[in-house]
Design a protein around this nucleic acid. Structure first.
Length: 300
DNA sequence: GTCGTCGCGTCCGTTCGACA
DNA sequence: TGTCGAACGGACGCGACGAC
C-alpha cells in the first residue's frame, strides 16, 4: 500500500469506531458529524477491502479484520501523538554534551560552581569548553558547532539571544616589594609603570584605555597576552602591573605574593553575559542549562 | 491577483435494517 | 408499527492549488 495516497485521518476515525462501536458516538469523539464519520467508514472499507463493521443491535460490530487492525492502529497513533507532543527535558536522566566557548577568566569563575551543580542535578550532561575571547561572538555559534558563548559582548549579531549574568569590577595588582609601588597606588605610578594587558585583538583600546583617555592619560603597555590566568604569574615575576578582574586577582594574590590596590581612577564595570543562537531559543535542554548558568552566576 | 478545479466537510433529507 | 441508528445523496461553503 502506498501511504502517500492514504488519508491518515481515516486511522483516527477507525480508532474512534473501534473504541465506541457506534458511528454517531465515534463522530462526536473525533469532532465530526455522523455523516462525515459514515463517509470515513466507507473509505476505510474501500481501502481495506473489508466491511470492517456490521450493524448490530445498538451500533456496529467490528469484523475480525477490524479487530486485527485495532492494536497496530492504536500503537501508530500513540507514536504520532508522542512525536507531536511538547518536548520535555529531564535533567536527571538527560544524556547530552554541551559545547561552550569562553575565556579562561569565565572558566575560572563559572565552571567550578556550574560543574558542581551539573553533577548534582544532571549527571549525564557533559560540558566541552572551547577557548574563546571575551568580546566577540564566534561564527561557530551560528554554524551550530558551539551551543553557548560566555563573555563581555560589545555587539551581538542578529538572530541571537543574550542574557546578562554578572558584573565584574577591576582592581590593580603589583608584586610585593615593587620598587615604585608601595602601600598606595598613585595615578602617576600606575600610568607610568608598564602594564600586562589581556586582549584577544591588538587593534583597539580596552575599556581601561578608554577610561584613561577620557582623563587625557595613556598607560604604558609592557606586554599583551591572551590569557587572564597568566597575568598573576607575570606580575609576580616582573615589575609589570595590571588591571585585572577582581574575581581573578583575589584567589591568586596570596600564593603569588601580589598586592591588590583599588584603581586610582574610576574604571568601567564589565558586564558578563551569555549569547546563543535563535535556533536554540526554545530547546528545552538549552533553556534549562541557561537557567542553571544564570542561577550559578547570581551566586558567584 | 484572479479564476477554475478539486477535495473535504457540513447540513439536511431520505432510505433501510434491526428490534422492542 | 414506531424508534433508533447507519448509510447515502445533493447542495453548499471553504481552503488549497495550479494556470493564467
Amino acid at each position: 500500500m502506498n501511504l502517500s495516497t492514504v488519508n491518515l485521518n481515516l486511522l483516527v476515525a477507525l480508532d474512534a469506531l473501534l473504541a465506541e462501536r457506534h458511528v454517531t458516538r465515534a463522530a462526536a469523539r473525533v469532532g465530526v458529524t455522523q455523516s462525515a464519520m459514515s463517509n470515513a467508514l466507507r473509505q476505510l472499507r474501500a481501502l481495506f477491502g473489508d466491511p470492517l463493521f456490521v450493524r448490530g443491535r445498538r451500533g456496529v460490530t467490528p469484523t475480525p479484520r477490524a479487530l486485527a487492525l485495532a492494536e497496530p492502529v492504536r500503537r501508530g497513533l500513540a507514536t504520532l501523538a508522542e512525536a507531536f507532543a511538547e518536548p520535555r527535558f529531564d535533567p536527571a536522566s538527560a544524556e547530552r554534551t554541551v559545547v561552550l566557548a569562553a575565556s579562561d577568566y569565565v572558566e575560572l569563575v563559572l565552571l567550578p560552581p556550574l560543574l558542581a551543580r551539573l553533577a548534582r542535578d544532571a549527571p549525564g550532561v557533559r560540558l566541552e569548553v572551547r577557548p574563546w575571547g571575551l568580546h566577540e561572538v564566534p561564527d561557530t555559534l551560528a554554524r551550530g558547532e558551539v551551543d553557548l558563548v560566555l563573555g563581555y559582548f560589545d555587539r551581538v549579531p542578529p538572530r541571537h539571544g543574550r542574557t546578562r549574568l554578572f558584573e565584574e569590577r577591576f582592581v590593580c595588582i603589583a608584586r610585593r616589594g615593587h620598587p615604585r609601588i608601595r602601600a598606595r597606588l598613585t595615578t602617576k605610578a600606575w600610568v607610568e609603570t608598564p602594564h600586562v594587558v589581556v586582549s584577544e585583538r591588538d587593534d583597539g583600546p580596552t575599556g581601561v584605555d578608554r577610561a584613561l583617555a577620557a582623563r587625557g592619560l595613556r598607560r604604558t603597555i609592557g606586554v599583551r597576552v591572551s590569557h587572564f590566568l597568566l597575568v598573576p604569574a607575570l606580575v609576580a615575576r616582573t615589575d609589570l602591573v595590571a588591571a585585572l578582574s577582581r574575581r581573578v586577582a583575589e584567589p591568586f594574590a596570596a600564593s603569588f605574593g601580589l598586592r591588590i590596590y583599588p584603581p586610582p581612577i574610576d574604571l568601567p564595570v564589565a558586564k558578563v553575559g551569555m549569547v546563543w543562537h535563535e535556533r536554540l531559543e526554545a530547546d528545552p535542554g538549552h533553556t534549562w542549562l541557561r537557567g542553571v548558568i544564570a542561577d550559578v552566576a547570581a551566586g558567584v
